[in-house]
């Protein structure tokens, strides 16, 4: 199963990188979500996959009896999921506020920090040039 997951994770990473390279920040955000999911899977996979058998100690036992699924990656993933959620919320609000302030989700046209000549400003995607002039 680990080998299958290695390929699945590869596909997810490829998909997330493609989204991260988009001009639309919402798509970039989707890329972030996909990437953090892929990374969580990486942690689980490299710790070894065991079907069933959650790491719980039975009522009579004092120690966890093998076989059991590896608890350490699980603990790490729990942390990672929560942190990932924190990151996502912040990024989402950032995108949202950015849109409110700048009126665009196009990262090419967000030039407050690194201003450029108005003439060099990339044209909005999928919008005829005349709309810009009218504004």
């Amino acid at each position: 199963m680990e080998i299958v997951m290695a390929f699945v994770i590869g596909i997810m990473v490829a998909g997330s990188v493609y989204l991260l390279l988009s001009r639309n920040l919402l798509r970039v955000l989707f890329g972030v979500i996909l990437l953090s999911n892929a990374v969580n899977l990486v942690i689980l996979t490299v710790g070894g996959l065991t079907l069933g058998l959650p790491p719980l100690i039975g009522p009579e036992a004092k120690v966890l009896e093998a076989p059991y699924s590896n608890p350490l990656p699980q603990a790490l993933i729990l942390t990672a999921i929560v942190i990932g959620f924190g990151l996502l919320s912040f990024a989402l609000v950032l995108v949202y506020r950015g849109y409110q302030e700048l009126g665009t989700l196009d990262s090419d046209r967000m030039r407050v920090a690194e201003p450029c000549d108005p003439a060099e400003m990339p044209a909005p995607v999928g919008e005829p040039a005349k709309t810009r002039e009218a504004a």
């Binding site: 689980l44 996959l49 065991t50 079907l51 069933g52 058998l53 059991y68 993933i77 729990l78 999921i81």
Partner: peptide, 8 residues
């Protein structure tokens, strides 16, 4: 869930 990580 399937791979023994119900909490996660």
């Amino acid at each position: 869930l399937v791979y023994g990580a119900p909490d996660v």
